[in-house]
Design a protein around this nucleic acid. Sequence first.
DNA 1: ATTCTGGCTATGGCATCCAATAGTCAGCCT
DNA 2: AGGCTGACTATTGGATGCCATAGCCAGAAT
Lengths: 159, 159
Amino acid sequence: MTLQLEGWFARRGDTPLGDHCGIDRTMQLVGNRTSMLLLREAFHGTTRFDALHRRVGVTEAVAAQRLKELVAAGVLTKEPYREPGQRTRHEYRLTEAGHALLPIVIALLEWGGRYTPSEFGPSRLTHADCGAPAHVEIHCEAGHAVPEEDLVVRAPHDR
Amino acid sequence: MTLQLEGWFARRGDTPLGDHCGIDRTMQLVGNRTSMLLLREAFHGTTRFDALHRRVGVTEAVAAQRLKELVAAGVLTKEPYREPGQRTRHEYRLTEAGHALLPIVIALLEWGGRYTPSEFGPSRLTHADCGAPAHVEIHCEAGHAVPEEDLVVRAPHDR
DNA sequence: ATTCTGGCTATGGCATCCAATAGTCAGCCT
DNA sequence: AGGCTGACTATTGGATGCCATAGCCAGAAT
């Protein structure tokens, strides 16, 4: 009913993992509501400060602060651009590391849609090519869907 | 380079989504470091208060508070049990909704392992049945892996 | 009867997150 | 020249998250 642990994960005592755990490090970087919602907007294609802060529904001060952190964390870039006849502005775009956050964002979206009540239904995810419903899943490189009890977590450099 | 939006998502102005967004609701329930780490331990099979608070590395007061919230959110249950010759204790176990958080937790783990520096390497995930490396992916029900640009997000009850 | 352990609760304080309000600055528009 | 807009910065204040320390209570062990 739970994961299978290997390496020293399996026989550790009560010592906390602390920064050795990727979950912890990820949560410290992007584990707050505003950052996740800003990332949602970035995945929706929103690039400008004004739209970002408005669509997330947060004050400008907070949006500016979180965006600065996300740029520092390397998940967004702030790049100058100019539309013809406009002055130079900046746009926020996902880096490769930022794009790699998609499974987290979609997993949050799916879980919320399924397990938290809302007067509106959940968003539906589909594959553009074939139209079939899409979901976040754990898959192995041999192509199998991996259920929780078949997932092995091996601690780094085994000892 | 971004998601494909359908329904009113595609043509909304600058109105914030607020609680209509599952990401937001999920973050409000479990979007903090301690809750995620407690969930990590739950997936590792840890059920007792003492072990949970020690292995997460958080004070008892905070652990008690977060566990209470997780139970209230319906992702953990607190059930009495007794070992022979021991007094009644309580164990914290994942509910079905709790187990459904696994993709979020694993996605956080994978991203942290790949994009945040650590003196130790990342944890390795494998499929117990075939031994192949495993990852969190977005898949459609027809069996295709869905890249970001082919993922369609349709707003609830299209209008 | 006293001690010990597991599982908490209580208190105080510091830090972070957020809202609300106000102000700044650059440059286009009139 | 003055106003407007986009993109911020600054300040105040409240709520939440966390730590550290201390205390409480039930029931087994002694």
